[in-house]
């Protein structure tokens, strides 16, 4: 049995089948990024003038490698959610909007994978 009104059915504008998922994901990634970004900024400040070997040894550490992977992954997830909202707000042409969103998703995933790969390569490298 359907709870929708006949008018609602006729208009065809039903539930979008998703509710608070986007909103919630944006908040959860934001909370995760608080400690991660603070840790990263502190690390960058400490290693700003360090030589290559020091930075390499730093990234060899399992804790650092795991935190960097988390940072890159969550950062791009959060960035995608935020930029998606901006595009949805300001791009009104449907085709342009959808293609921009798809392109944005590809770019975010590509950059995240490149970043994670670079971290793992250093972490597992000799």
């Amino acid at each position: 049995m359907s709870f929708r009104t006949p008018l609602g059915r006729a208009r065809g504008l039903g539930s979008a089948k998703r509710g608070t998922g986007h909103w919630l994901a944006q908040r959860v990634t934001a909370v995760a990024l608080i400690p991660l970004t603070l840790w990263f900024v502190a690390s960058v400040l400490i290693h700003m003038h360090a030589d290559y070997v020091t930075v390499l040894n730093w990234m060899h550490s399992p804790v650092v490698a795991v935190l960097l992977v988390l940072l890159v992954a969550i950062l791009y997830y959060h960035a995608y959610l935020g930029l998606q909202t901006v595009i949805e707000d300001y791009v009104h042409d449907e085709w342009l909007k959808v293609s921009t969103l798809v392109l944005l998703k590809f770019i975010c995933i590509l950059l995240a994978v490149i970043g994670i790969f670079a971290v793992l390569r250093v972490a597992f490298g000799g």
Partner: peptide, 8 residues
């Protein structure tokens, strides 16, 4: 990302 690539 550029910096991570550079380290690697």
């Amino acid at each position: 990302i550029y910096w991570l690539i550079a380290v690697a």
